[in-house]
Design a protein around this nucleic acid. Sequence first.
DNA 1: TAATACTATACCGGTTCGGTATGAAAAGGG
DNA 2: CCCTTTTCATACCGAACCGGTATAGTATTA
Lengths: 146, 146
Amino acid sequence: MQLNQATDYGFRVVLYLSCRPPGSIISGQVIAQEQRIPVRFLQKIMRQLTLAGLTRSYRGIEGGFALLKAPQEISLLDVVTAMEGPVSIQRCLEDTAECSRQCVNHCSVHRALDRVQQELLDGLTAVTFDRLAAEEMAKKEENKDE
Amino acid sequence: MQLNQATDYGFRVVLYLSCRPPGSIISGQVIAQEQRIPVRFLQKIMRQLTLAGLTRSYRGIEGGFALLKAPQEISLLDVVTAMEGPVSIQRCLEDTAECSRQCVNHCSVHRALDRVQQELLDGLTAVTFDRLAAEEMAKKEENKDE
DNA sequence: TAATACTATACCGGTTCGGTATGAAAAGGG
DNA sequence: CCCTTTTCATACCGAACCGGTATAGTATTA
């Protein structure tokens, strides 16, 4: 019951790009260095974010990655699904055949988990990266004062 | 981001026992058969539920398993933690060293996930097996009418 | 003491995880 | 046109986990 490392990295990358002027192109090298992510692994992550339509990539000598969507249009859930596919805490919520009792709307456990899952999705959707970036900027401002 | 098969089975076993008169001892064979769970695998599951203090086991010729706690004292979360250990959607919520940025209360992503996680825990804790069993019994009653 | 249950541990094939390697393709500069 | 710098696409690798099985042992009772 845990998000994987790639997703964790994904959060930080999107947050990092959200804190930069919109449209900034940053190379994988730089992102990896600043966020302490293995370069090769980061490339893999960036490709998934790009396939999911959250970022876009530029090849060539001045290439790199930039946000495609605006930070306020990207939620935590967007990053999770980009990295791990659709979120479904119980298997039979996704695919009836997976359920050991073929009980899609018949068993009480299923219905209860369905509600919990919906809350989870709502919670993850409610958090968008414009707000996270704002928090992050505010904190940097504080540190500057010290 | 998915509960595993063993947990799914665990839910059904506890629900099954909750629907029976309190203290009933049912053998692994019978549980496995009725709930369509591979017998050997069920033994593994029962041992974890027993170690977690949700059920107790009886050896010998009339042996089997029974609930140790009352259904109203067992929540979905209890079963999940019995089967999978502590629920922690993000690694750095559990262990600072796991966080790629060592940011336990410093990064905005962390704080947001912390809130989402708390909601998830609350949701899972709110559902107890007495209510699930009641739902289940009501449904069987309906089917009897048909 | 034999039968029936659970206990403990280990194994097994398959998949995922976290990360690396390699080679190709695009873009721009000289 | 070639060279460098970047991303792209695949494939690989060891370790861990998943779902399940096997085996040998221990407790209980008839």
